[in-house]
Design a protein around this nucleic acid. Structure first.
Length: 191
DNA sequence: TGCCCGATTAACT
DNA sequence: GTTAATCGGGCAA
């Protein structure tokens, strides 16, 4: 059986945690799957919510690592982040896509569609499939309803530019599972 | 106080 | 390729 990941896993550089999360399994109340795509954000990064300082919305990002930061995107969707680095770094990893594995029927019902490839192919889609909302903001990752299980085998991680940004678009801080068909978008060819 | 814009998605043309 | 849906933060006035 895979080993549960503890909160201490997240108390490192966000650029170490992000690739290490690829291939781990994320469950919310038993529903979820293998993480295949994430992005890294840090308070020194102009594209990060924490760049302009602490507010009521992003307060969790300024707290200790290993907690969940949920925010509303474009006034419609929810996006799920894991807080990383020692308290005060205001760094986080955005969960962008999963390979659905557990609770498929529940995810299909929540998403209102059946195509397994599209159930969790994007940050908003992942939150809808897992039932993540603002109610989960600030919860610890190592206690129910959340659970993260270590990889069962080695994976090959690829990097590329982040999606949907207008600032710091040159930073290759998007991480993905090589060859996965569950990515929100393909990674650009190397080179 | 008001205006602009965004770590998105789905349904158009 | 384009656009609507729709909310909170940053910034100007």
């Amino acid at each position: 059986m895979p080993r549960p990941i503890g909160r201490s896993f997240f108390g490192r550089s966000v650029h170490e945690v992000a690739p290490d999360l690829i291939g781990t399994t994320l469950l919310v109340a038993g529903v979820g799957g293998r993480i295949v795509e994430v992005e890294a954000y840090h308070h020194t990064d102009p594209a990060a919510h924490s760049f302009h300082g602490q507010t009521a919305r992003n307060a969790v990002m300024f707290g200790p690592p290993g907690y969940v930061y949920v925010y509303r995107s474009y006034g419609i969707h929810w996006c799920l982040n894991f807080v990383c680095e020692p308290k005060g770094s205001a760094a986080a990893v955005l969960i962008r896509a999963l390979e659905p594995q557990a609770g498929l029927a529940t995810m299909r019902r929540r998403r209102g569609m059946s195509d397994q490839r599209l159930l969790c192919a994007g940050p908003g889609r992942t939150c809808e499939a897992l039932g993540v909302t603002a109610l989960h903001n600030g919860l610890p990752l190592d206690k129910p309803p959340f659970a993260i299980l270590a990889r069962a085998e080695a994976v090959e991680v690829i990097t590329g530019p982040r999606i949907g940004l207008t600032k710091a678009i040159d930073k290759p801080w998007r991480y993905g599972l090589k060859g996965s068909r569950f990515l929100s978008k393909p990674f650009p060819p190397a080179g």
